[in-house]
Amino acid sequence: MDLSLFLQQLLNGISLGSLYALIAIGYTMVYGIIRLINFAHGDILMVSTYFAYFGISVYALPWWLSVIIAILLTALLGILIDLGAYRPVRHAPRISALITAIGVSFLLENLGLVVFGGRPKAFYRPDFLDKTYELGGVHVFSLSIWVPLVTALLLALVFLLLYRTRVGAAMRAVAKDMEMVQLMGIDVNRVISLTFAVGSALAAAGGIMWAMKYPQINPLMGILPGLKAFVAAVIGGIGNIHGAVLGGLLLGTTEILLVAFLPSLAGYRDAFAFVLLILILLFRPTGLAGKDTIG
């Protein structure tokens, strides 16, 4: 095996994997707190890329400002979805909540088709992300370096929030025992809203980097990253943030390496994640990292 080619593909894999990880954290945090698979997570990601697109291409704002606004708006969208759709079914059977989430997912996709149109739109890619370096025979695309870096930064922020602030402590407590936390005088609904906000914001960051990577967006683009990030969350043990990061990196890297070194299987790339999911659930249902709580 050619070492430089391997390193190059490994970097691509880590880059893709860190995107999965960012998106997976949103799934895992929401699941850890209210035991709901937020089916609409991938579609929230899609909406965020359109927010950024409108900022950059329609209102001609600087790209970094558009990205920040898009992330904030997406966090707000996450809170609104929780308020409008998930809170009313919070005490219903879990399957009802899941069906609601599937409904929200299809609603976002089809509203996207109605409002934004089905034709893919070109997404802006800043110049510094559009360069290729050569380091000792390894061709490195600058975006592939920036994505893991930004991911690491955001992860550090999430861990700061969870372990160094009072709301973070409240979030971890709600994940452990919601009723007890209510007795302690913590407003559970606010904590859940905050969880949705953080999860959606991370999905927005991941989605915008995803859009810069490919560089185009369409209303159905969220489905695949959403499903794969969910698989990553399950691989890591859903409800566990370290696990989500681990699962995302693992899934991204294996996927890229598989395609790079076994090209005959490239067509099966999208099935790979699910085969992995089925195997994990069969042999290690709690995921690689195990444990069913946030943190």
Binding site: P88, I99, T100, I102, G103, V104, L107
Partner: peptide, 9 residues
């Protein structure tokens, strides 16, 4: 989609 969500709620 809206119908599905409303029925569930």
């Amino acid at each position: 989609s809206i119908m599905l969500i409303l029925v569930m709620i």
